[in-house]
Write a protein that binds this DNA or RNA. Structure first.
Lengths: 336, 336
DNA sequence: GTGAAAGCGCTAACAT
DNA sequence: ATGTTAGCGCTTTCAC
């Protein structure tokens, strides 16, 4: 920057003013600076600016994994929105593993970005308060009581309840659940399980532990695997609610592999409304949880928290609207 | 860091040595430092380290979009591999738009990371040399002649040729191509188109411009749209090679919507071997281009370039092995 | 409207 | 094996 100043015949401070949009500057000064920048092909050293200003212009997005359509689409929207606000996005993935989640919360990178959008999977609310190092944080999922965090959350419970109730209304009586956890339940899992149980209860149906199937992850192979176990069990099943679209599509595929006719023999419902749910054969009924709005809300809240020192995180979660998207995988149940 | 040094009764330099793994240090010194760090809950200020050392410990991954399964899976592997090497990954998306691609190449963020992995879509080789600001760069796609860049590339041409030849061998005679460009062709597009044409020619089949269909992007809706236009055209088609899996799955869906039986009436082949190709109904024959190996190779090459000042980028591209994965969407052609 | 000087928190180079 | 000095390239403060 010194070089630019010298070439333009001004001080470094004036060049700095130029970059920071300082308003009072003579037109000829501005032009000389611009000419010098072009001439020298100068780019500001962000490390130096960061050191001095205490800001980095970057936020971190810490999620379980990118190779899950929902999270990839979420990340895409976060990157776009951040770009609008002049922020870069550093992506860390945790694989949903507790150890990595703690690392992210305690590590130095978290304190060296302006803020973090964080999706806890293995970590509970207490853990987060305990391990958190004091940087601006927006949580995806449950509220951490007392923590100074914004939190954005999908309508997990209500969305699931609506979807399962829809199956009940269509006449299905043996509705399986795919995607529970054999070990520690994540917040989203707990809420979706609750929505499922409530809908069955409200519909006067029995809640059967044997048709609630745990999976390790939430990818297609897990869904296929779960479906195979379900069919092997001999339990009667006429519909499946899966905790996300990938599980539902994997389950549907496994059922078809075994010679069942979809959706005639078994109906399927997913959650997320990722692109592949529209284009599966048959197309998949699913819950659209307002993904883009949520991602934008997360970035906006974080940005406000970063740039306004008086900003106080909202007590209430930011929840988006959801919508049940009805497609061909859930026909009205024909009398058997 | 000064605080830590004071509390531990050593100089700042010794604390710095501690963080940088300097080997010669008395055990009790080390322990006093560790105690002080814990006591103060100290985390290093990376901006200061970056300013001083001229490195940031971050690389940038500049790709078209994250909400494309192939790129999301690629990004996931890049993040993992970078993490292994102690590097953070800043993700920028360009949407494949020329203007954004230039911005990324010229902007200040590129000069403020240690290196960049870059996927040009709209930008040609000349553009890249012209706009590049001198930072370590690994390109995905074609070789930029004379540029000091490593480049990693999928076996676009050979993979496509093999896939289309397979259709020819099975007896298909009217093989459409989905995913060409109406405007400027990207490197990958050009190579896949060439592979397609070569395979047809080698098989003694006519190359028909009318069954080569352009799409705006490479997502499912684009594939569906292209398939509809193809079917509306009245051209005879018994198989489709799509430039990626998403296009193939969208096209397959559209054909099914119109009452065609898949794969009996039309066979489909994709490219990428994303997870959804395994679990579609019917499962999709596709080219597996060694995605993970490629992502790891890209990070490794960049890391070497960053850390070894004598490293000279290879002349030859890093190409991975590919494999044709045969599934149910391409049965041997029964005599009609 | 612009300049001069100080200093953000680290590490390279050298000293001990 | 550890301490001292200087300075990375910016922005802040205050003076002009």
């Amino acid at each position: 920057m010194g070089d630019v100043a010298r070439l333009a015949g001004v001080s470094a401070k004036t060049v700095s003013n130029y970059f920071n949009g300082y308003r009072y500057m003579r037109e000829d000064t501005r032009q000389r600076i611009e000419a010098a920048i072009t001439e020298l092909d100068y780019r500001m050293n962000l490390s130096a600016r960061n050191l001095r200003s205490g800001k980095t212009g970057m936020i971190m997005l810490a999620i379980a994994e990118l190779d899950q359509a929902y999270l990839a689409e979420f990340a895409q929207t976060v990157v776009n929105k951040a770009e609008e606000l002049g922020l870069g996005v550093l992506i860390e993935t945790t694989g949903g593993r507790r150890e990595r989640e703690v690392e992210v919360l305690e590590g130095s990178r978290g304190r060296n970005v302006d803020g973090v959008i964080y999706e806890p999977v293995a970590l509970g609310a207490e853990d987060i308060s305990k391990h958190h190092g004091g940087f601006p944080l927006v949580l995806m999922g449950e509220k951490v009581l007392g923590g100074p965090f914004d939190h954005v959350t999908m309508p997990d419970e209500a969305g699931t309840r609506t979807a399962v109730s829809h199956l009940v209304d269509l006449g299905y009586q043996n509705i399986a659940l795919i995607g529970t956890s054999a070990t520690k339940e994540s917040p989203g899992q707990a809420l979706r399980r609750k929505g499922y149980i409530d809908a069955l209860t409200a519909g006067g149906l029995e809640v059967r532990e044997h048709i609630m199937v745990a999976t390790k992850r939430w990818h297609r192979p897990d869904g296929a695997d779960a479906m195979n176990r379900l069919l092997d069990s001999g339990e009667q099943v006429d519909a499946v609610f899966a905790m996300n679209d990938a599980l539902a599509l994997g389950a549907m595929w496994a059922a078809e592999q075994r010679g069942l006719r979809i959706p005639h023999d078994i109906a399927f419902v997913g959650f997320d409304d990722t692109e592949d749910a529209t284009y599966s054969i048959p197309s998949l009924t699913t819950v659209s949880p307002g993904r883009d709005a949520l991602a934008r809300a997360a970035v906006t809240a974080l940005h406000r928290r970063i740039s306004d020192p008086h900003y106080v995180p909202g007590e209430a979660p930011i929840v988006t609207d959801y919508e049940l998207i009805m497609r061909k995988s859930t026909p009205p149940l024909a009398p058997r």
